[in-house]
Simulated assay, not measured.
Amino acid sequence: MEDRLRELWDFADLSATESRFQELLERTSSDDDKAELLTQLGRIEGLRGEFGAGHEFVDQAEAMVSPDSTARVRVLLERGRLHRSGGDAAAAQPLFVAAFVLAKTRGDAFLAVDAAHMAALVDDPEKWTKQGLEIVAGSDDPQVKEWFGPLQNNLGWYYFENGRFDEALVAFEECPEAYAESGKAKTLKALGRDDEAASAARRALELLPHDSFEEWVDEMKAIAAAE
């Protein structure tokens, strides 16, 4: 199942996103639908660093949700995000797990993958990333399929950071090209395969988004020059 609220988000313009959710909230009558919108307003406050205000929105949502609804999944997920962003990973972990279990049971595939992605940030990265990838592999939903690149990329970096370079290389090679080349470049460099690393780094620079971090650009340029 797709995330019907996703199209309302613009992470580069939280004020405009907030206005869209507020306007829709005013036109919504169902408690569960209202609760879903309130959780998104809570997420916006969390992205602003206003965690208390974020929890207040989620509190309002929690008071009106049905027990096994999509709205309940969102309450768990956004409460977890607020705790994690506020520095309390221990409080976030069981909420992400509960969101994953309920979303998967309901068939809310997009939210289940989102919950697995978040659980990977506070628990076992390999386990939860693979859980998310399993759902992606079994879905025909284009929105759900879009999770493949970020999750596969995260798995590659987990292997890389733990010195599992051969597994990292396989993971990066399976990524969509935009995610793969920088990971391949660093991994090949770590394996001592400098010529291949330089080639991957040059390709990464060709795919470079205009707003990429300067440090990332410098790192790729250094690998490309070390052929």
Rank of each mutant, 00 (worst) to 15 (best):
F51G: 02
G52F: 03
G52R: 13
G52L: 10
A53Q: 13
G54H: 09
H55Y: 03
E56A: 15
E56C: 00
F57T: 00
V58P: 02
D59V: 01
D59H: 11
Q60K: 15
A61L: 10
A61Q: 11
E62M: 07
E62Y: 11
A63C: 02
M64Q: 14
V65M: 10
V65N: 09
V65T: 14
V65R: 09
P67N: 11
P67A: 10
D68I: 00
D68E: 15
S69W: 11
A71M: 09
A71P: 05
A71E: 08
R74Y: 11
V75T: 13
V75D: 04
V75Y: 09
V75A: 08
L76V: 02
L76P: 02
L77F: 13
L77Y: 12
E78Q: 14
E78M: 13
E78P: 01
G80P: 06
G80A: 10
R81A: 04
L82Q: 07
L82I: 13
L82E: 04
L82Y: 07
H83I: 01
H83P: 00
H83L: 03
R84V: 01
R84Y: 11
S85A: 13
S85V: 00
G86S: 06
G87E: 09
A92L: 08
Q93S: 14
Q93Y: 00
P94M: 05
P94A: 03
F96Q: 12
F96I: 08
V97I: 14
A99G: 14
F100Q: 06
F100K: 03
K104N: 15
K104M: 02
T105L: 09
G107K: 12
G107Y: 11
A109R: 12
F110Y: 15
L111I: 04
V113Y: 07
V113L: 08
D114V: 04
D114L: 12
A115P: 07
A115S: 15
A116L: 11
A116W: 07
H117M: 10
H117Y: 12
H117C: 02
H117E: 10
A119D: 07
A119H: 07
L121C: 01
L121Q: 14
V122M: 10
D123K: 06
D124S: 13
P125F: 03
K127W: 05
K127P: 00
Q131G: 00
E134D: 14
I135M: 04
I135A: 03
I135F: 03
I135W: 03
V136E: 09
A137T: 06
G138M: 04
D140P: 02
D140S: 14
D141C: 10
P142R: 09
P142W: 08
P142S: 08
V144A: 06
K145I: 03
K145R: 15
K145Q: 15
E146H: 10
E146T: 11
E146C: 01
F148V: 01
P150H: 04
L151R: 06
L151H: 04
Q152C: 02
L155S: 08
L155C: 05
G156D: 08
W157K: 04
Y158Q: 12
Y158P: 01
Y158I: 12
Y158H: 15
Y159D: 07
Y159H: 15
F160K: 07
E161H: 12
E161N: 14
N162V: 00
G163K: 09
G163C: 09
R164V: 00
R164D: 08
R164I: 00
F165K: 06
F165E: 11
D166F: 02
E167D: 15
